[in-house]
Design a protein around this nucleic acid. Structure first.
Length: 261
DNA sequence: AGTACCACCTGACGGC
DNA sequence: TGCCGTCAGGTGGTAC
């Protein structure tokens, strides 16, 4: 689930439910989701604090606390947030749970424990620690060209490299390449200028559309490939059969007719 | 710089 | 029904 659009939706959810409320209790329910902090530090750092605002960089949410520290969330492959009142409504697999003064709770849910929470002094310090490239939605065409300049890798692998640009994952990489008519294994350096611009435009369009639709594939436009990522499914544009391959170890779907090498 | 492979985890699913 | 291999939208390390 959690690529840039999903994480942006989580951030909006957090903003709508959990800002400006005093945190009265913190429960770390599983240590594997802790980054460079101990359970003690998380508890001490959050208890009595309020979350005042949030930012997103790639697939990370950074929450500004009222003591000027930052509480960060990453969701791995299976993370999400859930705000609820009564403990009997607590979701399964919640790994961190905050309680607010109003009696409500915010759960950080992460089935596979591949996500991570952190507590850091500064925004930039965190970005540096994770070596995150510019956010895929806050990047202009010139910056995009500069970033891609001179790269010898495959286009899909490059799009998913969080140090080069952050936010694009396996699913949405497939979508923007499909919308651009680019084969996922195309070498960056062999992409003509206008194809690179098209990819930039489609990257933004796909991410923005997904956010508008609350990252729910059921509501995606008819011509999106995401709802058709499955064996034996057909291309929503030409009707041909989609092909599943593996690109840098990740399941990849494309339409051989619409995305020629 | 780029790639291939392994590892970290849990849960769902298909085959037998 | 139950066991087993395989796979899953992320990332990091290592070896080539």
């Amino acid at each position: 689930m959690p690529e840039l659009p999903d994480v942006e939706v989580f951030r909006q959810y957090l903003n709508a439910t959990s800002l400006h409320k005093t945190i009265t209790d913190v429960e770390v329910k599983h240590r594997l989701i802790l980054g460079n902090v101990t359970a003690e530090k998380i508890r001490e750092g959050l208890r009595g604090r309020k979350m005042e605002s949030s930012k997103r960089r790639g697939k990370h949410i950074l929450i500004h606390l009222d003591d000027d520290n930052w509480f960060t969330l990453h969701f791995g492959m299976t993370g999400r947030l859930k705000y609820f009142k009564h403990l009997q409504d607590a979701p399964e697999h919640d790994r961190l749970r905050l309680e607010f003064k109003n009696g409500y709770h915010l759960a950080y849910v992460c089935v596979r424990l591949l996500g991570e929470v952190n507590l850091v002094d500064g925004f930039e310090e965190f970005i540096g620690m994770k070596d995150l490239g510019p956010d895929a939605l806050r990047l202009n065409l010139t910056q995009f060209r500069d970033i891609m300049e001179g790269r010898r890798g495959m286009v899909k692998t490059t799009l998913m490299n969080q140090s080069i640009l952050s936010g694009v994952g396996n699913i949405y990489a497939d979508e923007m390449l499909f919308q651009s008519g680019i084969h996922p294994e195309t070498k960056i350096k062999s992409l003509p200028e206008e194809k690179l611009k098209l990819l930039f435009d489609k990257m933004r369009e796909v991410l923005k559309t997904a956010i508008e639709k609350k990252a729910n594939p059921d509501d995606f436009p008819e011509d999106f490939i995401i709802p058709h990522r499955d064996e034996g499914e057909t291309c929503p544009i030409c009707g041909g059969e989609l092909v599943k391959t593996r690109v840098s170890g990740r399941a990849t779907y494309h339409c051989p007719r619409c995305q020629k090498r």
